[in-house]
């Protein structure tokens, strides 16, 4: 197999004795759409925090394209093409939806400009296209703090996409999104990922979403991986059914 885009080796993290990662190793390869499932509090968000440099593991390392990024800042890792959408949306809540998007678009190139406006025709069009795709076409000029929770979630994902990442980490993208909007969101996301050749990892609780979209599934439990495989393989595993999905 080719070298993975992202690889975590032997991660250990504990918070006050609670092990959120207990010797975990994972890898994600080009073109994958890797799902991570597991009970609440099992350390899934912590894994994303480590992979993006937000917290340092007690031991172990994270490699991006084979380079050690364990001790880089979130900013440095973002600049290497890794974007993240958060479990709790991280938005510029006092700003309009379109400004959130345009700032994300400007972040990569064009930030160091104090003369031309943020709102150029081209940038606005690009932002608008992404908002249309993700299902926020009607919210363009709203202040983002006034959006309903589900739409804040969508905006958070759109902002991450605006960075044109190679690798996208999504923390429960469909949580808070209404059942009606869930599959349209996933379809839009999948088409964006395919079109832009983005590899992605997503933490997810909705098993229908996982079954339908994931190319591979990791089952997380108590800081470690208890099973791994294609969705159909994982879902037929009796232990997984009992402990994670909650059906015997």
């Amino acid at each position: 197999m080719t070298r993975p885009i992202l690889e975590a080796r032997g991660l250990h993290v504990a918070f006050n004795g609670v092990k959120a990662a207990d010797g975990v190793s994972i890898s994600i390869h080009d073109g994958e759409f890797l799902a991570i499932i597991g009970p609440n509090g099992s350390g899934k968000t912590t894994l994303l925090n480590i992979c993006t440099g937000y917290i340092r593991p007690g031991s172990g390392s994270v490699l991006l394209d084979g380079h050690d990024i364990t001790h880089l800042s979130p900013r440095a890792i973002a600049r290497r093409g890794v974007a993240r959408a958060f479990q709790i949306p991280q938005l510029f809540s006092a700003q309009r939806v379109i400004d959130n998007m345009m700032l994300a678009l400007a972040a990569k190139d064009g930030l160091w400009n104090a003369i031309r406006p943020l709102d150029t025709g081209a940038r606005r069009a690009e932002a608008k296209a992404l908002l249309d795709l993700i299902g926020l076409a009607d919210d363009t000029d709203r202040i983002s703090s006034t959006l309903p929770e589900g739409h804040r979630k969508l905006l958070d994902i759109a902002v991450a996409l605006a960075l044109k990442p190679r690798l996208l980490l999504l923390d429960e993208p469909t949580s808070g999104v209404s059942a009606l909007e869930r599959f349209p969101l996933m379809e839009a996301l999948m088409s964006a990922l395919r079109q832009r050749q983005i590899t992605a990892l997503f933490v997810e609780h909705d098993m229908d979403v996982v079954a339908r979209y994931a190319s591979r599934v990791l089952v997380w439990n108590a800081g470690n991986i208890m099973a791994e495989g294609r969705p159909d393989q994982v879902f037929s595993n009796a232990q997984v059914r009992e402990r994670v999905i909650g059906v015997a």
């Binding site: 973002a78 510029f92 809540s93 345009m102 400007a106 160091w112 104090a114 709102d119």
Partner: peptide, 27 residues
Amino acid sequence: RYLNSPLGHALAAVHSNEIRLEYLGIP
């Protein structure tokens, strides 16, 4: 002009959400 520019918007964004700014790769 400065306040309307990307740099000016980034400045206002500091008030809103520094975590998101870092994750956008903005120092």
